[in-house]
Structure formats: C-alpha cells, structure tokens
C-alpha cells in the first residue's frame, strides 16, 4: 500500500520534471547549435552586418534585418491592437451591461483561437488587395498587411487581460470619482486606467511577446525577403519566418545554413524570455499591492 503510494508520487514527480526538462532541452539545443554557429561566424558580424543572406552564394550573417523585420511587424500590430483592445476593455468594464460583456468577451476570444494560417490567408487575399487600393505602390508582399492582421489577432489578449485588471479596481475608488461629478470617461481615464496600469502593461507585454513569436501570418503575407528597413510597404522577413523558410527547404543537417536557424531561434527565445519575465515581475508586484 505504502509502496504503491510512493511509486505513484514518483511518477507524478516525473511528469512535473518533464516541464523542467523541456526548458533545459530548449536552452541546451539552442545554445549548442549556436555555439557551433559562432565558431564559423563572428559575433560582431552577427550583430552588426546589415545583410542576412545565408542561403545565397555570397553569405552574410547579420541578424539585424530579421530583427528589424520582427520589430516592424510587431510595432504595426501593437499600434492597431493597443487602442482597440484598451477601448474595448474600458467599454466592457465601465460602460456595458453585464449581458453585453457576457456575449462580447467570448466572441472576441474566438479571434485568438483562429489558426494563424487562416489569418495569413486573410492578410494575403483580403487585406493586401484592399490596402493596395488605398496605398499606391504597395507591394503584393509587405509588412503592413500582416502587421494589421496580427494586430486584430492579439486584440483579445489586450482586451481580456486589461478588462480583468480594470474590473479588479476597487469600486470605492471609482465611486469617489463619480461623487465628484466625473463622467464615465473621466473616471475611466483618470482613476481606473492608472489604477490598473500594471495589469494593462502585463497584457501589452504578453501581446508583444505573442506578436514577436508569431510565424504563419508573416510567412504567408510578408514575402520572406530579409531587408533592413522600416518601410512597411515592401517585403520583409522576420526571425520566425526565416526559420520556417529554411525548414521547408532542403538544407543539409549540420551545415552552417542549418545552424543559422538555431542562432535565429536563440535570438527569438532571449527576446521573448525577457519580455515574459518582465510581465511576471510586474504581475507579482501588482498582486502584492492589492493583497
């Protein structure tokens, strides 16, 4: 009996340990391959070269074009998602009735469950042609269209988490503002939003981290051409799409080209790891504040 309990506990411990092994595995795989990569390419070239052409005859290994491509797309996505997501959050928490919130919230969350290839299809076949009508000279593949679509995709991340944060603001604070004759808008912007600011920040950071890691929308609609530019009208490539591009081709295992995807992956991992941990830190501080 006791023996059986011990075996079960050991098995459950193993299940828990798998999550740790996963993390260790990710770090080990990325590091080992990246170290091999840097035995052939200097760190200086990697960080300062302005071209990324590992698959060409004349090879350049500057990560910058991929990083700027990633940042550009993320920036566009946040410019779209932040005002929309935050307005929705304020509207749902401060204006709408309970009934409206109960219907709208899950509907918006559908946006987050749509597979990303579907968004890619949407960006390529609907948004890009539409934008081409407005913006002359917009290339068929560009950063703008997938950026906008990604923005729509991450709206529920911002609206849901921000709404939770706004909702958690003690109603006594809001009532004090109303008692002084504030309108709902004034109360929301001057009392509720500042009080919920750390929660809102967490939602934005998580949305950014999600946008940086997003792959398929960009792979389909942004053109897969690494280019050091902040012009949203031309084709670009992000870190994630480069990995997909190499993986769908025939790059031999163990070659330098093969290792580039791990160096790119490590860059991506480090960025999202830092962002995620900033958000955990804020969340933890914010929780202590209220308890």
């Amino acid at each position: 009996m006791n023996r059986k309990e011990q075996i079960i506990e050991a098995l459950l411990f193993l299940c828990g340990a798998i999550s740790v092994l996963t993390t260790l595995g990710i770090i080990a795989v990325l590091f080992f391959q990246t170290i091999e990569f840097f035995s052939e390419v200097s760190l200086k070239d990697f960080l300062t070269d302005t071209q990324w052409t590992p698959l060409f005859a004349i090879k350049h290994f500057g990560i910058l074009p991929l990083v700027t491509g990633t940042l550009l797309i993320t920036l566009i996505a946040i410019i779209i998602a932040l005002p929309i997501g935050l307005s929705i959050a304020i509207y749902l928490s401060e204006y709408s009735s309970k009934g409206v919130r109960k219907i709208v919230k899950p509907l918006l969350e559908i946006l987050a469950t749509v597979p990303t290839v579907v968004y890619g299809y949407f960006a390529l076949t609907v948004v890009t042609p539409f934008l081409q009508l407005i913006i002359p000279g917009l290339s068929g593949f560009n950063a703008l269209s997938p950026g906008i679509v990604m923005g729509i995709m991450i709206v529920p991340f911002i609206s849901s988490l921000s709404e939770d944060a706004l909702y958690a603001v003690p109603s006594s604070l809001k009532e004090a503002a109303y008692a002084l004759g504030s309108t709902r808008l004034q109360t929301s912007l001057k009392v509720a939003v500042p009080a919920a600011s750390s929660g809102i920040m967490v939602s934005v950071i998580l949305a950014v981290s999600r946008a940086i890691g997003e792959t398929m929308i960009v792979a389909i609609a942004a053109g897969q051409q690494p280019r050091l530019t902040f012009d949203p009208r031309v084709p670009i490539e992000t870190i994630t799409t480069y990995i997909v591009q190499v993986s769908s081709g025939d790059v031999p295992n163990g070659s330098l080209e093969y290792r580039t995807i791990f160096a790119a992956g490590l860059t991506l991992f480090v960025i999202t790891f830092i962002l995620n941990n900033i958000s955990f830190y804020i969340k933890k501080k914010y929780r202590e504040q209220y308890e």
């Binding site: 999550s19 996963t22 998580l206 991506l268 991992f269 999202t272 790891f273």
Partner: peptide
C-alpha cells in the same frame, strides 16, 4: 521554480518547440 518554469514555457514561441 516549477511554476515560473511552466509560465515561461507557456510563453515560448511555438516555433522554438519546433527547433527542440
């Protein structure tokens, strides 16, 4: 540690799992 680890894993971009 396990908890932070799992939160972190939830935030790792899916393509990184592909590399793993």
């Amino acid at each position: 540690f396990l908890e932070i680890n799992i939160s972190n894993l939830a935030g790792v971009p899916s393509i990184i799992y592909g590399l793993l």
